[in-house]
């Protein structure tokens, strides 16, 4: 399989990846290295992991990061209640094998990272918004991402039965350590260009009128050039396209008041809604409706 055919496979799933992204995904899966994706919100970083698991028909294991995430919620934890019950039940009888018994596989709660490396089929492991987790958590990740193994003091080292395809995403709310970055292949996912975005729209909303699709994408592209706090991503564009078609608008310039009402799909802060009043919307529409 070459990276071109991967790109085609993704496109068949409705995910239009540009060359750089397709190459990065291809190399990461070939060399079994983690892939680090950075970029603005709403450009399809998380989506690529979902599509990859769909292509290979693998499980998707997702770890959503947040501040305060630690090893016991991400790697493993002992099932204390069960252990305690077991100890109480065995209080009178045997004591020798007790240790071995309560620190065995049965009492181990696998969290996403351990689960990902103990699957029979290599799954896709999505570590979402890694920049939200603490720096200590990055250190845990290093062992898993480079060696694909987890050390549990009571059990020993658990080595991967199958190496998962790891995708990390980051919005850049914190700079990641270079150690983590160097273990990954890196791609910066930008907002798609006009052609790509048009292809995405056509893939996601098949049957949309070609002229309207062109207007929608052109409008969103020029809206991104405006001075906004939160630029609309691809997801917002798709929401908006669905809203516009759902309202039966055939041409963006048809009904200015209705169109302005649909802008809630694209502008997600009060300041942005204030910054793009009806006149500006109409000016942008005027540019794309030839």
């Amino acid at each position: 399989m070459s990276w071109k055919s991967l790109q085609t496979d993704l496109a068949a799933q409705g995910y239009i990846a540009n060359d750089a992204l397709a190459m990065a995904v291809y190399l990461a899966s070939q060399q079994q290295r983690p892939l680090l994706l950075e970029g603005a919100a709403g450009v399809g970083k998380t989506e690529i992991a979902k599509q990859l698991s769909a292509i290979h028909n693998n499980r998707l294991i997702r770890l959503q990061c947040y501040e305060g995430l630690d090893a016991s919620t991400t790697i493993y934890e002992w099932n204390y209640q069960k252990q305690l019950l077991s100890v109480q039940a065995a209080r009178d009888g045997e004591t020798e094998q007790l240790d071995a018994r309560i620190f065995s596989d049965r009492f181990l709660l696998k969290r996403p990272l351990l689960e990902a490396i103990t699957q029979a089929q290599p799954p896709v492991l999505l570590i979402d918004e890694i920049d939200r987790a603490d720096e200590e958590f990055e250190a845990y990740l290093l062992e898993i991402l480079s060696e694909y193994q987890v050390s549990i003091p009571e059990l020993g080292t658990i080595t991967a039965t199958s190496k998962p395809m790891v995708v990390l995403t980051s919005n850049g709310s914190r700079d990641l350590s270079d150690a983590l970055r160097r273990r990954c292949f890196y791609t910066y996912v930008d907002y798609p260009d006009l052609q790509t975005e048009l292809a995405i729209l056509n893939a996601r909303l098949p049957g949309i009128d070609a002229a309207l699709a062109g207007q929608i994408v052109g409008f969103v592209q020029s809206l991104r050039k405006e001075d906004l706090e939160k630029k609309p991503g691809v997801a917002e564009m798709l929401d908006w396209a669905a809203a516009v078609t759902g309202l039966g608008i055939a041409k963006l310039s048809d009904n200015p008041i209705e169109l302005q009402a649909t802008m809630v799909c694209l502008l997600k802060t009060q300041a942005d809604q204030y910054a793009i009043p009806g006149e500006i919307t109409q000016r942008l529409v005027g540019k794309v409706v030839a």
């Binding site: 060359d19 190399l27 070939q30 060399q31 290295r33 910066y188």
Partner: peptide, 29 residues
């Protein structure tokens, strides 16, 4: 990693090699 990658892609195409090197060697925006 780049040498390994060259085996799996079309090493004769500058664009392919560029994309491959880019994803392997760059680590920041």
């Amino acid at each position: 990693a780049t040498l390994k990658a060259l085996k799996t892609i079309n090493a004769g195409s500058p664009q392919d090699v560029r994309l491959a090197c880019k994803t392997i060697c760059s680590i920041h925006h």
